[in-house]
């Protein structure tokens, strides 16, 4: 069992490097995260992950998961993204991860500050269940105070209801 976990971890580690290098340029999200990540990768990936390698890299490229209004539920797509990051982190024990929770502008600001925290906590819980030590995970809530999109419509609100994963 132990052996198997490690093997998956290593495979993901190698792929993770490739994923991060391309995406950080693209998204400009969480500046500095890419620099910290590269070089911390450890031994390169094994060939065993040929199946779904591209998909896994795509998942690691995503550093934001999204939520429904007034919800902290992690949907299937977000779960896959979080699983990919958890595996990468398991393989890179020196990395610490910071989860920042955000909300859209609807609803009251103080309630949203608590809601953003709960979103970050729900991601944190999953990351820990997936084997990342509590001491390596921290969360912060910005509520609705740091939207990435400033318009007052659902497509914008959707982008703002999020947890950003940075390490």
């Amino acid at each position: 069992m132990k052996f198997r976990m490690l093997w998956i971890g290593l495979a993901v580690a190698g792929l993770g490097l490739a994923g991060c290098a391309t995406t950080d340029k693209k998204e400009g999200e969480g500046a500095g995260a890419g620099a910290e990540t590269s070089g911390a990768g450890g031994p390169g990936g094994a060939g065993g992950a040929a199946v779904g390698a591209g998909a896994r890299a795509d998942l690691l490229a995503k550093r934001v998961v999204y939520f429904d209004f007034d919800s902290t539920t992690i949907d299937d797509e977000s779960r896959s993204i979080i699983e990919a990051h958890a595996a990468y982190l398991a393989a890179n024990p020196a990395l610490k991860v910071r989860l920042s929770g955000h909300c859209d502008e609807r609803g009251t600001r103080e309630y949203n500050l608590a809601l953003g925290e709960r979103r970050a906590q729900s991601v944190e819980k999953l990351v820990r269940v997936l084997g990342v030590a509590a001491s390596r995970v921290s969360n912060v809530s910005y509520g609705e105070e740091k939207p990435v999109c400033a318009e007052h419509n659902e497509s914008c609100w959707r982008q703002n209801r999020r947890v950003e994963i940075s390490y």
């Binding site: 103080e110 500050l113 608590a114 925290e117 709960r118 906590q121």
Partner: peptide
């Protein structure tokens, strides 16, 4: 105040 020091708000 609202604090979440004990786990939730």
């Amino acid at each position: 105040l609202t604090l979440s020091k004990d786990g939730n708000a």
